[in-house]
Design a protein around this nucleic acid. Structure first.
Lengths: 191, 191
DNA sequence: CAAAAACGGAACATCAGTGTTCCATGAGAG
DNA sequence: CTCTCATGGAACACTGATGTTCCGTTTTTG
């Protein structure tokens, strides 16, 4: 017991391996949610046995992916400084930050069954925070006063998804796709 | 050999059973793309053996679903009379008609791996037709002249998906969700 | 009604993925 | 260097889905 590794405080080798597995899982499962654990382990450059040490069951891995994606989304929201300036600008910044997260969020978007953990009960804190910003935007006149917050949330996700897909399918550079997305969000939400 | 049933000309009992299986498959697979054939057969009110008579392998069923959805989308496009009136109006009508198709299109949207058949090579006729309308809308001034057709296609799908989800998750009536969708498309595509 | 078609269920072999155990090897910390 | 930790691979049992065959029953059709 040289050091305690009770909760999420793992460091060094173990943390690196864990991250490699999570990243590989996102990559592989994005293509096929039914991919085998063997495939994921191979992509991570890790033995299947090792993976079972980190995530005893498939459901453990899926839960970890879900949680990790949620944390990345929260971090993106923090970076976007949602409380600064007009609501419309905050929404714009949020889209930019979320776009960077890419793969993990695509995976969640395409597989709602992943969002069934305890942290997703009812609306997540993340969702509430975003809807709050939309309402602020309506108050300060930077967003359409008729815009429903829950609907706006759906649209943001959907247009981000569109941008990712557009980049993938049409071979458009990511920045171009992001630009299209931001422009469309702006037009759709403007008063 | 009382009657030939070589191609798609099946009629009566067989056609009805086939349709029941396809409908049940869409319903079940929408919830979980990995659902077992047994579940689908049970939902269809049909023996698993019977299902294997119509679709020998799982892949045959998936291909049939994919094709059926594409045909329904084509039918919707026809009903929308894409060549009539201003481009913006045609797009609006198309959204309304596609919205009615609902479940099958949701299934495809959530599972791009279903769209790998021969009929999906490159761009489908459907996609080309829609992009043609968008370009017409740009010419006649009813749509944003800067609107990229391929991007517009993505956005239409994404906002339809948003409407379906919004109705499901927020418990909003379908017509309300459709209305939000149409309004958002209009704002996003307007000059 | 009588023949033909469609159906359902039971039984079976097969297969891929999963989760587990055990052991030998390699890398890193002290 | 040496001890500890992390790892990879082989082997195994188990499970659930799949595809197939066979046969008796029901429904449709002529």
């Amino acid at each position: 017991m040289s050091q305690q590794r009770s909760d999420t405080a793992e460091t060094g080798t173990r943390a690196r391996t864990r991250r490699a597995i999570l990243d590989a899982a996102v990559t592989v499962l994005s293509q096929d949610i039914s991919a085998s654990l063997g495939d994921i382990a191979a992509t991570a450059g890790v033995g299947r046995t090792t993976m079972h040490r980190y995530f005893p069951e498939r459901s453990d891995l899926l839960a970890a992916i879900s949680l990790d994606a949620l944390e990345q989304a929260d971090a993106a929201a923090t970076r976007a400084r949602l409380d600064d300036g007009p609501g419309a600008d905050a929404v714009n910044r949020l889209c930019q930050e979320l776009f960077e997260v890419g793969d993990p969020l695509m995976l969640l978007f395409n597989n709602p069954q992943l969002m069934t953990g305890k942290e997703w009960e009812e609306e997540s804190d993340f969702d509430r925070e975003v809807m709050r910003v939309v309402e602020r935007g309506r108050s300060d006149g930077s967003l359409d006063p008729d815009l429903d917050a829950a609907w706006a949330l759906q649209v943001v996700w959907a247009l981000l998804y569109s941008a990712w897909m557009h980049s993938l399918e049409s071979g458009v550079p990511k920045l171009t796709a992001l630009s299209l997305c931001l422009r469309t969000v702006d037009k759709a939400f403007r008063p």
